[in-house]
Structures are given as C-alpha cells and as structure tokens.
C-alpha cells in the first residue's frame, strides 16, 4: 500500500522533532490547515461517539470512485488527529481505505503518549467511523 505524500512528509517531519512540544505544535498546525467543515454538516449523524471532545466526520463520493472526507473537532489536538487520519485516506477508493490500518500508521509516527492510538483521544473511534463509511460506499449506500 502506497501512502499519500502528505502523510509520509508529515511522518518524516515528526520523526525529526525531538521535543514533545514541537510534535504537538506540528499536529495542531495540521488541524489548523484542515479544510473547513460546513456547520450544516455537523449533525448527530456525522458526530463520532466515544470521543471526550466533539468530533464530526463526513464523506461524499469523489472522482474515480474515491471518497472525499471533511471533519472537525472543537479541541485542537483532536482536530489535528482528524487531519492526520484524513491525510491517509483523502480521495481514495473504499477498497484502498479498508486495506489501511490507520492505528498502525499513527503508531509509526512515534508521538507522545497522548497521541498514541491506544489512548482515549478518540482516534480509534474516528478510524472506525471512516471504515464504516467506506463499507457503506462499497455497498452503494453512501
């Protein structure tokens, strides 16, 4: 599986940073650069449960059978994690998305304790939502 250059570039940058403050800053900056999500899309249906801050993820069909995602969170760090997740899957096909293991990719970044995939930052819940959306798209139900 070839990873998108946006993600691999970020991984290279993060691996160069020694200081955990800098790593957080990089994640937060990623969130700040995230494509804005229309408030109209922040509904009960797009809200991801299981996160201690609010998280929304929405998918719509894109060209060449891909899926285009938008997402947001009211917490900066979690929004950075949303951006990180979307950088892995943006505009890819459902088959490609389901072949990925986002939690393993996050673990490969060597981030501080709170940004690890096992912590309750909601990353697991977001990754599960994205997979569910990809499965829906496979069944033509998106």
């Amino acid at each position: 599986m070839i990873l998108p250059t946006q993600f691999t570039a970020l991984r290279d940058e993060l691996l160069l940073l020694d200081d955990w403050e800098d790593k957080y800053r990089a994640i937060i900056d990623l969130g700040r650069a995230l494509e804005p999500m229309s408030p109209a899309l922040k509904t009960a249906a797009t809200k991801v449960p299981g996160c201690s801050s609010q998280v929304w993820v929405y998918a719509q069909p894109h060209e060449h059978g891909g899926l285009h995602f938008t997402g947001d969170s009211d917490a900066h760090i979690v929004k950075g994690l949303v951006a990180l997740l979307l950088s892995l899957i943006q505009n890819r096909t459902p088959d490609d998305i389901l072949a990925l293991d986002p939690r393993a990719e996050l673990a490969s970044l060597g981030l501080a304790s709170h940004l690890s995939p096992t912590r309750t930052n909601g990353f697991a819940a977001m990754a599960e939502r994205v997979r569910a959306l990809a499965r829906q798209a496979q069944q033509g139900a998106l």
Binding site: H76, I77, A112, H114
Partner: peptide
C-alpha cells in the same frame, strides 16, 4: 480558543 481537553492533554505530558 483552547478546549479543556487540550489543556488536560498537555498538562498530562
């Protein structure tokens, strides 16, 4: 502009 969740996360580091 900073969610309490963000504050708690950084303090825990």
């Amino acid at each position: 502009c900073v969610h309490p969740h963000d504050i708690g996360t950084i303090l825990d580091e």
